[in-house]
Amino acid sequence: MMMRTGLRWLWLTGVVAAIDQISKILLIERLPPFRPVAVLPSLNFLLTYNTGVSFSFLQLPGGWQRWPLAIFALVIVAVLVGWLARMASDRRLLAAAVAIVLGGAVGNLIDRIVQGQVTDFIQVYWGTWSFAIFNLADAAITVGVALILLDNLLGGDGRSRQGA
């Protein structure tokens, strides 16, 4: 049954979540918090922690948001797994995309449950402008959503839509 649905892509979810967690563990061990380390022009490693959600929204004192946000993330994970379970196995691009988003969600969920916060460490900047600091789970979610949109643009079957 599992091989005839999008659930066959759960291995990719595991890979994404594992890479995310390994990267965070390695950088927590090696980087001083809140001090940028240049990697490339316009790219730093900058170890930070976010108790809120995207762009530090809901990052409030007291940590009350840990469990409500963890429960919300669990609901999202359940919805994504349900989507994969209902998806035909021939929807490879869509299934891989959802699995990638799911891996990112699981990576950040692990942080939130274990640490009460999400570890972020990638800072992209230009001059004095800096994008929000993020992690590989966030990047996976972004790439996965972009692939879901691409699948939609291709008509869900690898062909571009007529008149598009």
Rank of each mutant, 00 (worst) to 15 (best):
A85W: 14
Q123H: 11
F55H: 12
A140I: 10
L58I: 01
Q117Y: 13
V114T: 13
A137L: 11
D90W: 14
P61H: 13
V98I: 15
F57N: 01
R112L: 06
T142C: 15
L84S: 05
R112T: 02
V145Y: 05
L80T: 01
A73P: 00
L60N: 00
D90G: 11
E29T: 03
P68A: 01
V77W: 08
V106F: 10
A85Y: 13
G127V: 10
R112N: 06
L74W: 12
T119V: 15
A139T: 14
T51A: 12
A97R: 05
G82M: 08
L102F: 09
D120Q: 05
G103D: 05
I100W: 06
P61N: 12
F121E: 00
R91S: 10
G63P: 02
V81G: 08
V143N: 09
A88E: 15
T142L: 13
I133W: 04
V39R: 03
L74I: 13
F121Q: 01
I76Q: 01
L94V: 05
S89R: 15
V79W: 10
V37K: 01
Q59G: 12
V39W: 05
A95N: 14
G144C: 07
G62A: 10
I76P: 00
V114E: 11
N135G: 10
L74M: 15
G62S: 11
F55T: 05
L27F: 14
V114G: 03
P41E: 14
R92M: 08
L84P: 02
D111V: 11
I122H: 03
R66A: 10
F134Y: 12
D90A: 12
L69H: 02
A85D: 06
G144M: 07
L46H: 11
T119K: 06
A140E: 07
F72E: 00
Q59H: 12
S130Y: 08
L149S: 09
A99N: 04
P61R: 08
P36Q: 02
S130G: 07
V75I: 15
R112G: 04
L69I: 02
Q59P: 00
W126M: 13
R66V: 12
L47N: 05
T142R: 08
Q59K: 14
